[in-house]
Design a protein around this nucleic acid. Structure first.
Length: 172
DNA sequence: CCCTGATTCGC
DNA sequence: GCGAATCAGG
């Protein structure tokens, strides 16, 4: 892809609007963020204030954040006694399951994660792609929280998306 | 590790 | 002129 007048104009526009090089590259298509940055330099466009890593272009402050659930799991540590025998192995496994259940229920009942309010162009392989709001409206965005193992959703929205079975009833 | 922009340098 | 590789910072 080469730099047609159109593409250069779009680059100038988006850059002046404060979009990051990678965002611009994504929107132009066919070029890397390096290409965008290189072009910006060649055009002698004004760089981003403050050298090195700057950025964080206009953060809308942070909206109300949900209170964090206490981390009970951290306290429910090992309390195993002497265990040169094989029976204790079984006990440990049970304990782990209980902890897992606690975490699960805490998450299921309380946690409503705040979204990072990402735009489409900001999504990557490991950001939650759960849409929020009306796509036709301006405030539409994506969750954007970390999604484990390249899942399309964060752990919270993955549960909403792939409702297993028993949980279904409780939510309804 | 994710991201950002800046710079270099072979093409 | 172009942009991948590299550097440097958050």
């Amino acid at each position: 892809m080469n730099w047609t007048d159109e593409r250069v104009e779009k680059l100038k526009k988006l850059w002046s609007e404060g979009l990051s090089a990678s965002q611009i590259a994504a929107q132009l298509g066919g070029v890397s963020r390096n290409a965008v940055i290189g072009k910006v330099h060649r055009l002698s466009l004004p760089g981003r204030a403050k050298a090195g890593g700057t950025t964080t272009p206009a953060r809308p402050k942070r909206t109300t954040s949900a209170p964090r659930a206490p981390n009970y799991a951290a306290r429910a540590v090992t309390r195993t006694v002497a265990r040169p025998s094989g029976a204790t192995v079984l006990k440990e496994e049970v304990a782990v399951d209980l902890v897992a259940e606690q975490e699960f229920e805490l998450a299921a009942n309380i946690v409503v994660p705040m979204s990072r309010r990402l735009e489409l162009t900001q999504l990557t392989e490991r950001t939650c792609k759960w849409p929020i709001g009306d796509p036709l409206k301006e405030e539409f965005h994506f969750c954007g929280n970390d999604s484990p193992e390249s899942s399309p959703y964060c752990s919270y929205h993955a549960r909403l998306a792939y409702q297993p079975s028993a949980e279904r009833r409780r939510i309804r």
